[in-house]
Amino acid sequence: MTLDQLQTFLWVARLQGVRRAAEQMNISQPAVTARLQALEDTLQVKLFERTTRGVVLTREGELLRGYAEQIGFVQEEIRQRVSDPTGLEGLFRVGASETIAETWLPRFLEGLSQQYPRLNLELTVDISYNLREALLARQLDLALLMGPVSAYSVNNVALPSFELGWYRATGAALPDFLKTPVISYARNTRPYRELVEELGKRHGPGVRVFSCASLSASIQMIASGIGIGPIPNALAKDRVAAGQLCRFDPGWTPSSLDFTASWMAEPRNSLAERCARFAAEVAQAW
């Protein structure tokens, strides 16, 4: 019985499939099958039953899973407490929303590079919905997104919120919500849904909403006079100072944007956990 066999067993048990486990571990399906067969031969028991939806654990498999998870926990404890962080190698995949990418993300990545000089970083900037799906599919190690991610398998660390304000192009007249388009976040986001609901309550169904997945493009559209919209104050201040944007008060403000640093809870990933807490420190300092 080897650690590789136990790790492979755990991935198949978690993902309920040999193919999905092979993709996650970046090895071939025959290699996964061979490790499982060797483990079953060693223990002289059957660990999985095949179903139309994948594989499920037998009674013996459920018993082994508990022991294998304890071994995995000890491995992570050893790696966290004994190993030198500067010697960590491999690929660490970070996903971030554009709001974070436009603010404190560069400081976070710089600090991460200094702490782990041999680690390769892969960055994805996308809307929070897509980041959440990528995290749950285990395509990201850490997601900095509008959260929390309310899934049993995910851990979340709270990040500072971003307050929103209403902005228009400098020099433009006070807007009429029934005539001036409202520039908003992408359609499949919580801020878009909340904004459309509130606009409908206050101004009726006649409000035109232009959804945009790019925050920087939205800000440029507002500064160009195409429309008005709620923008994180932290991102608007430079444009206000440059005389491009002007804040106004229509009598209400959308909810602040709440963010979390989120990572998969199992298998335990001490690197992702440390990076999440470091992200919170950097964001708070920013």
Rank of each mutant, 00 (worst) to 15 (best):
Arg65Tyr: 10
Asn26Gln: 05
Ile183Ala: 00
Phe92Ala: 04
Ala21Pro: 11
Ile228Arg: 02
Thr33Phe: 02
Val196Asn: 00
Arg19Tyr: 06
Gln16Ile: 14
Gly95Val: 11
Gly227Thr: 06
Pro148Thr: 08
Leu271Ile: 12
His203Thr: 07
Val125Leu: 06
Lys201Asp: 15
Thr170Val: 15
Ala13Phe: 06
Asn130Gln: 11
Val240Phe: 07
Ala173Glu: 14
Arg59Ala: 14
Leu15Cys: 09
Phe278Asp: 06
Val56Ile: 13
Glu102Ala: 01
Gln244Asp: 15
Val209Ala: 02
Glu40Ile: 09
Asp176Ala: 04
Gln29Thr: 14
Leu145Arg: 01
Tyr116Phe: 13
Asn156Gly: 03
Glu89Phe: 07
Ala22Trp: 02
Pro181Met: 00
Ile100Tyr: 03
Leu136Ile: 15
Ala137Thr: 14
Ala38Asp: 10
Ala101His: 01
Val207Ile: 00
Leu145Cys: 04
Gly206Phe: 00
Pro230Glu: 15
Thr189Met: 10
Ile127Asn: 08
Ala96Ser: 05
Ala213Asp: 13
Arg20Asp: 08
Leu36Glu: 09
Pro106Thr: 06
Leu145Gly: 01
Ala261Tyr: 01
Ala276Ile: 14
Ile71Arg: 03
Ala236Pro: 06
Ala276Gln: 02
Glu102Gly: 04
Glu89Cys: 09
Glu49Asn: 08
Lys46Glu: 13
Leu3Gln: 12
Ala143Ile: 13
Gln37Glu: 10
Glu76Phe: 02
Pro175Asp: 00
Gln80Gly: 07
Gly90Leu: 00
Val209Trp: 01
Gly95Arg: 01
Val74Trp: 07
Ala280Phe: 05
Arg208Lys: 04
Ala34Gln: 13
Gln29Val: 15
Phe210Met: 10
Arg168Asn: 07
Trp11Ile: 15
Glu60Val: 13
Ser128Tyr: 05
Ile183Gly: 00
Met146Leu: 08
Lys179Ala: 01
Glu102His: 03
Leu131Thr: 11
Pro106Ser: 02
Ala283Arg: 03
Pro232Lys: 03
Pro117Ile: 15
Val207Tyr: 04
Gly111Phe: 06
